[in-house]
Amino acid sequence: MIVIRDLHKKFGRLKVLNGLNLTLEQGKISAIIGPNGSGKTTLIKCLLGLVKADQGSITVSGQSLNGDWAYKKMIGYMPQWAHFPENLTAREIISMIKDLRNGEKNWDEELYHSFNLGREAHKKIRTLSGGTKQKVGAYLAFLFHPQILVLDEPTAGLDPMASSLLKDKIMKEKAAGKTVIITSHIMSELQEMAEQIIFLLDGEVKFQGSVQNMMADNKAEKLERAVAAMMGRYSS
């Protein structure tokens, strides 16, 4: 379970998070949505310890985030754009990460096989396509069986086949009790996977509830319409 209390963050004069409160239960897929600049990325970065909040607290499985890095073992992160050192091969990147996490030998190699990464692993990152780099990024996020998965626009650069393989994997991990946090702009995809929608605006949670509730509240058949209606209501 992730509990976020009264989180504030300013970059210079710009308030990005504005007293954000959020509780995410274990074993659910939660989608964080909101217009550009609403604080989605900053929220995720706070959770990952990349950004330090000015005020407020985050607790991950009862462990409070106070500058200690050990809790990151529980989190698997897939960034929006995968950038790796250009001159290393995919295999070397993978072995570097495994090397940094030695002691954890129970690897989840499922995506390596389903994405057929073996065929590309010997090539230098520089020569790989954007989609292949994304696949490596996705594989790394699941590699250590994390309890919590943070996926930032996971399917953005993937072809339909890879994208559906990844969705299957996400559903499978969810069924195994993992907590999944996704941001995406592809609403149909969220409608398909997410159980819970968290709508951010101006660094605050404006709505948190099930996909069904959100659609019912906004009298829409599709999540995309519901979200558009909601964004329209708040911005006017």
């Binding site: 990952l48 890095w69 992160y77 960034p79 995968a82 950038h83 996490r101």
Partner: peptide
């Protein structure tokens, strides 16, 4: 830069 972010999401 981006690779540093990825490494920092690891427990190091």
């Amino acid at each position: 830069r981006e690779f540093i972010e990825l490494l920092l999401s690891q427990p190091i």
